Simulated assay, not measured.
Amino acid sequence: MTPMPTDRPLDDVTAELTALLGSIDPLERTDQAYGELARWIRTGVYDELLAGLGDGMSAGLEVGLGETGTDTVFRRSWSARLMADCVARENAIRVLPARQLLVWGDRVATWFVREGDLRGHVEGKGPALALSHGADAIAELAVSQHFGLPELTVLLDVLADRTLLPTGTRLVSGEPDRLARATIAILGRDIVPMSILEPWVARLANGAIAIDPAGQAACRSFNTQNYLRALHLQVTLGTPGSGRPGVRSDLLLVLVEALRETNRELRAS
């Protein structure tokens, strides 16, 4: 990684690196642009500019939104990943007002459910991973001191809404694990009760049953089933930094029942 330049204004360098988030060259995009910006966020370079930087990244979520199969996905996806870094930094230093985090949360959630390009990797151009990066941003938002029960409930619904949307894409690049990790971040706050979680799991279970063995219904079932399995595993084992939620025992019972009911081979004869 290159050191932060001292011979040019930080705003100019930031604008150049932000533009490179949409590069089709994976080294430019991930190592140079994302790598440098993320490092400077983490080391405090942007602490006094964090609100503006996060706003700029949230604007990147709108670039080409609605397109599928085009290169604009890179700008949206890596902007979301940097949104996660901005929120993580705010969680560490706690300098931004509640309104700023709520605005960011709304922008991330709106983009997340509208994103249509679910490719994990693009041949010759490297990782896209829009859903994984969106889940990372949601995981960091869940830790924010400004997010209480209403906001955490919305984040849970956003994760479910996204997973249950009709799609022709099977998520095979680790997305279910990242979605589950975001869910664990929400549960780790020990605020959301089982009275909310139980119907939430039931809603996912309904989408995990494939009525049509082909097409979008099959892809949705495949993705939702893998999300439930990843969530069950992470609730069982715990995840680094999140511990085990207080509702763990009750939630495991609900998850096991959901998996049993959506997998014929596991049902009692």
Rank of each mutant, 00 (worst) to 15 (best):
I184E: 07
D190N: 12
A135N: 09
G105K: 04
H133W: 02
D136F: 01
L10A: 11
G174R: 04
S23C: 04
L171E: 09
V87K: 01
A214L: 12
L10I: 15
S249L: 13
N263W: 04
A59E: 15
V143A: 13
G120N: 02
G120T: 02
G126E: 05
D106I: 06
D190M: 03
T6A: 15
T72C: 04
R203A: 11
R89D: 05
L266M: 14
L259F: 05
V143N: 02
W40F: 03
E175C: 06
V154D: 10
A205R: 13
S269L: 13
R81H: 12
P9T: 12
V13E: 14
G174P: 02
P199I: 08
A15W: 01
V108R: 02
H146D: 14
R244H: 14
D12Q: 14
R99V: 15
T262A: 13
G64A: 06
E175T: 08
L179E: 05
F147I: 05
G238L: 11
L255V: 07
S23F: 00
E90G: 07
L231T: 04
E198H: 08
A214E: 14
D31F: 00
A268M: 10
D47C: 07
A202Y: 06
R8S: 13
L237W: 11
T153I: 08
G44Y: 08
E261D: 14
G241T: 13
G215N: 04
G116R: 12
L251D: 05
L21K: 04
V87N: 04
L10T: 13
D212N: 14
D71W: 00
L252R: 15
C86T: 10
W111C: 00
I41P: 01
D157T: 11
L141E: 09
G174E: 11
A217H: 12
A33I: 04
A98S: 15
V45D: 01
D47W: 10
A80V: 07
L156F: 08
W111D: 06
V254T: 11
R178I: 08
L65N: 02
P193A: 05
G116D: 09
R107C: 03
Y34L: 10
Q234W: 08
V143Y: 06
R170C: 00
R170V: 06
F222N: 12
M57C: 12
R220A: 09
T153S: 11
T110G: 02
Y46S: 08
G188Q: 06
R248M: 12
R76A: 01
P9I: 07
R94M: 11
E257L: 09
T167E: 00
D250P: 03
T224R: 08
S132Y: 04
L204S: 08
I41M: 10
G69R: 00
S58P: 01
A88F: 03
V103M: 05
T239C: 12
V113G: 06
V254G: 06
A182H: 05
G243R: 13
R42N: 11
G105W: 02
G126H: 07
T224Y: 07
L37P: 03
A137I: 03
L155I: 01
R178N: 08
L61D: 12
V201Y: 10
V87L: 06
D12K: 11
A51D: 13
L251K: 11
A59D: 15
L233S: 14
A98E: 14
T224W: 07
P199K: 09
L131H: 02
T6I: 14
A180I: 09
H121R: 07
A92F: 08
L152H: 00
A137Y: 07
I191Y: 01
V73T: 00
T183F: 01
L118M: 13
A202S: 15
L102I: 09
